[in-house]
């Protein structure tokens, strides 16, 4: 794994105050790194500047200070090296699903011939299971299918890094689950480096290798980085049976419910924004939470009940 493929140093964003108000510092001194092939999720409440960070990484927004270095080059402005999946899919409604992907591929390979472009389009539409619906306009596709086209479009330019801005936020739980699985598969196949915003704790645990927790804005910080210690071949169907799962989940929920606010009000004394602490809640607590005695007593209880009925 290529270490520190993406490096974010001292990033801050200040919005000038409207009509004499004091300027608003959304976040300041944000530092983190992402290794090549790593899947990183960022979680935090609305207003902590997650989307702004993603837009800065994408080159669509500018930081007030600090810099972003990807692959040893400073990020300045948008680039084909970073594919973006937008929150509202952002498909062009006058183009069919395939033409939307083709538009991206032609931007990446302006000199490629039709056959090559066609092959690339088909490959990525196939990857997200859209073959058969590729000639439909976005208005004829369901929300999940639209987002799949958005994912195919982002992957089709074969970027060095993928940025996903809450891509499944507008989808129903069932569709979301299916697409999460697909995304997991595609990332495993392509070893894609991903930075993703999410509000969904379970989604983060399923997909991410590293979960960055942001404290509440304004003056938001990366409070800590949770390392996902679940095995990498996890799947949606079995993940909740792993004892680590709830340890991590509880840690994340605790953070969102109370610690994200407390952190902004009074950060811990030893907190260094240059090196936000890495934690491994999955490994922290001792084994099962339910005592052994309770389990055995339940096991005995069952036949007893049956006997009474007889």
């Amino acid at each position: 794994m290529h270490k520190d493929f993406l490096k974010v140093e001292g990033l801050s964003k200040v919005f000038p105050g409207a009509r004499g108000d004091a300027p608003l510092t959304v976040f300041s001194d944000i530092n983190f790194t992402i290794d090549k092939g790593e899947f990183v999720c960022i979680i935090g409440h609305s207003g902590c500047g997650k989307s702004t960070i993603l837009n800065i990484l994408a080159g669509l927004d500018e930081a007030t200070s600090g810099l972003v270095i990807m692959d040893q080059r400073e990020v300045s402005g948008p680039s084909l090296d970073r594919g973006v999946v937008f929150q509202g899919h952002a498909l062009m409604p006058w183009l069919s699903a395939k033409k939307n992907v083709e538009f991206a591929v032609r931007s990446r390979l302006p000199k490629a011939n039709g056959v090559t472009v066609e092959a690339i389009c088909r490959r990525y539409l196939d990857l997200v299971g859209l073959i058969g619906a590729e000639h439909k306009k976005p208005s004829e596709l369901s929300g999940g299918m639209k987002q799949r086209v958005g994912i195919a479009r982002a992957f089709a330019i074969e970027p060095k890094m993928l940025l996903l801005d809450e891509p499944f936020g507008a989808l129903d739980a069932l569709t979301r689950g299916v697409i999460q699985d697909e995304l997991l598969n595609i990332c495993a196949q392509t070893h894609q480096t991903v930075f993703m915003i999410t509000h969904d704790v379970d989604e983060a645990i399923l997909l991410a290798d590293k979960i960055m927790l942001m404290s509440n804005g304004p003056q938001a910080r990366i409070a800590e980085i949770v390392v996902n210690t679940l095995p990498r071949d996890r799947s949606r169907h079995t993940i909740h049976k792993d004892p680590q799962y709830y340890l991590i989940r509880n840690h994340l929920v605790d953070f969102l419910v109370s610690r994200s606010r407390e952190f902004t009000e009074c950060p811990p004394a030893d907190y260094d924004p240059k090196r936000p602490p890495s934690v491994t809640p999955g490994l922290a607590a001792p084994e099962p939470v339910i005592p052994e005695s309770l389990l055995t007593s339940r096991a005995i209880a069952k036949p007893v009940l049956v006997n009474i009925r007889k």
Partner: peptide, 29 residues
């Protein structure tokens, strides 16, 4: 023209002329 579509064009490094004819013109048509 929707900001999202222009952002898509930006992230794909689409040139000015191509953006005008392939994104803005059909969007505003």
């Amino acid at each position: 023209v929707k900001r999202d579509w222009l952002n898509v064009a930006k992230t794909l490094e689409v040139g000015a002329l191509r953006k005008a004819f392939r994104v803005i013109l059909p969007a505003a048509a």
